[in-house]
Design a protein around this nucleic acid. Structure first.
Lengths: 352, 352
DNA sequence: CTGTTAGCGCGTTCAA
DNA sequence: TTGAACGCGCTAACAG
């Protein structure tokens, strides 16, 4: 039986507004109005139209509508990865706000380089989204130009910039790194290490932490970079490596809660005590951070709020409100829990 | 300063194929061809067109293209939640396959009821996607009718059905529950409990487990249902509750690895030994399962393969290949690790 | 309250 | 290899 490849391409769905109108005894425009602005159509015709829609199973063609009105009700979302609760929780909150206003998401993963992102931005713009949401503030000049000439609202998330394309919603990663360093120093630590996933923003936090910690303690800070996404396994192996390198007694700052979680597990497996032997600090305050044992000291960043605020700001601009702020600093908060020792005093004396 | 609300709505991007054509000294159609089928355009004109595109910053209008060609290159994706690695990893693999063929995702969260899903399906269909991916095989009759009359490929994931709308890719949840029960029985357990998130498929696995375990052991199976998504905190509190109820020594089957993870943590916090005091079994074999301490015994389901296969099957249908299977059983595999005791023999004797 | 007329920016014929 | 004409299905004016 020879395979009958290449076939129909049928794709029925032939019902148009004109067809519905004919059945209801009105013109196509009236059907359009019945759907978009029912109050301006007489109750009787409205009823006939609704009946006709029911009978035919009519589904409006939003493509044609978008072309005619120059409004697609589509929002482009570009995130490094969807399989990462950091971004997923933010996108979820973002989408929730927009869904109520009839917007839907065109979503793509960008990977982690501006170059990969550039091509995707152009593809997305060809769909004529009403607005765009990007991750980070680092984009190629060409991508930036495309976005600017599209003349639609653009949100950049997770970071701050003095010159955003549209507006940005995020926080200061350098300040976050410093804050953690100050916390560690204030708790008497004189020995520290950083485990981080190789992400530009994480790298900036790590650099700020290390600089400040060294400045305050005189000690250099060991660090281990992990390729790829942050995983529990990655955190475990990085901590194991740190121990193998002779790192002893001190504080470990991880670029994400997931990595810190891995450190906790590796410590348990090696029968080390947290926080007696090592203090561990995460980043993000993901839902599980408070439920770990010991509960994780971390830096809280409100991912949902990030998504919600970006959505609200976009909606305002879509509704013609001008003059919204270009820079929204949501800040962060260090949450002290059981994975770091609370009392002060000299520590890490037996270090190395 | 009175706010200047309601403004321009400009949305420039006025460059069309006609404009590019004029600049290049050719007609609009030739530009269209230069983009979609360059080989039929002479090298010189092609060059002039490319230059004109460069100069103008032309971005094709995919909306108009879709309307004219009746092909949107859009794939609708409806998942219960995006902030859940179970679905996120699957969507990621799914999108990756389709991206290479020039398709993009229109993504929405459905929540967990067929009714919520129904409205979204209709909204999505109005965008004229070339195909649709749904989660589960349980949909309202009305939604089913809409999808059928759309006459496009439809994939249903994570479950099996004898009468799918288009085709389904999943596994037998009842068989999975039974397999876990048989495993527990074979390892000598005579006391069991289930902790599960209130999801229809998880419920089916739980029911199958309980029935088979009771049948094999004569003992009834305690269970705790958790509202909302599976979380570590939920797993912890459920296990704590189980202990408070007097559940002692036995096996605990969790409807997801995340819940099982919570059980492990609660056990650690209460200084209980896994697997000496309790055997714990998860579901999903998520990346972290092997990295827990103790490593988690679980049921592997290949989420990436699920997404990939669905994408491949959809692509085949989009390319006109007929007769693909309507039911793809990807199966599952019980992965035995350290969270369950390996040797056989009577257990749980001190139970309750 | 309803209809008429014009596009929106492309792909798809068909002719040249 | 190129172009003219047409239409995809809808919204946006403007009449009536």
């Amino acid at each position: 039986m020879a395979p009958k490849a290449v076939s129909t391409q049928s794709k029925a769905q032939r019902v148009t507004m004109a067809a519905v109108g004919k059945l209801a005894g009105v013109s196509q425009v009236t059907v359009s109005r019945a759907l978009s602005n029912p109050s301006v159509v007489s109750p009787e015709t409205l009823q006939r139209i609704e009946k006709a829609i029911e009978q035919t199973g009519f589904v409006p063609n939003a493509l044609a509508g978008a072309l005619a009105s120059n409004k697609s009700r589509l929002i482009s979302v570009l995130v490094p990865s969807i399989n990462n609760t950091t971004y997923a929780a933010m996108v979820q909150a973002f989408a929730e706000q927009l869904r109520h206003q009839g917007y839907q998401l065109l979503l793509s993963e960008t990977g982690h380089t501006p170059e990969e992102e550039e091509a995707l931005i152009k593809t997305h713009l060809s769909r004529r989204p009403d607005a765009v949401m990007l991750t980070g503030v680092d984009h190629t000049p060409s991508a930036r130009k495309s976005l600017e000439s599209a003349a639609i609202p653009v949100a950049e998330l997770w970071d701050l910039s003095d010159d955003p394309i549209g507006f940005c919603v995020g926080f200061d990663h350098t300040a976050a790194g410093r804050t953690v360093a100050d916390f560690a120093l204030a708790h008497g630590h004189r020995n520290a290490a950083v485990i981080y996933a190789d992400d530009e923003r994480a790298h900036r936090r790590k650099a700020a932490f290390s600089q400040r910690f060294t400045q305050g303690s005189g000690a250099s800070v060991a660090d281990i970079a992990l390729a790829g996404p942050a995983t529990i396994g990655g955190g475990r192996s990085a901590f194991a490596e740190l121990l193998a390198q002779g790192f002893g007694r001190g504080v470990i700052f991880c670029s994400s809660d997931v990595l810190a979680h891995g450190v906790l597990i590796e410590a348990q497996a090696q029968a080390l005590s947290i926080p007696q032997d090592f203090s561990v600090i995460g980043f993000g305050d993901q839902a599980f951070a408070k439920d770990l044992f010991p509960a994780l000291t971390t830096v809280r960043v409100d991912r949902e709020q990030l998504g919600r605020l970006a959505a609200t700001e976009l909606l305002a601009r879509l509704n013609g409100v001008t003059g919204g702020g270009k820079r929204h600093d949501l800040g962060f908060e260090l949450i002290e829990r059981a994975s770091t020792q609370s009392k002060k005093g000299e520590r890490d004396v037996a270090s190395l």
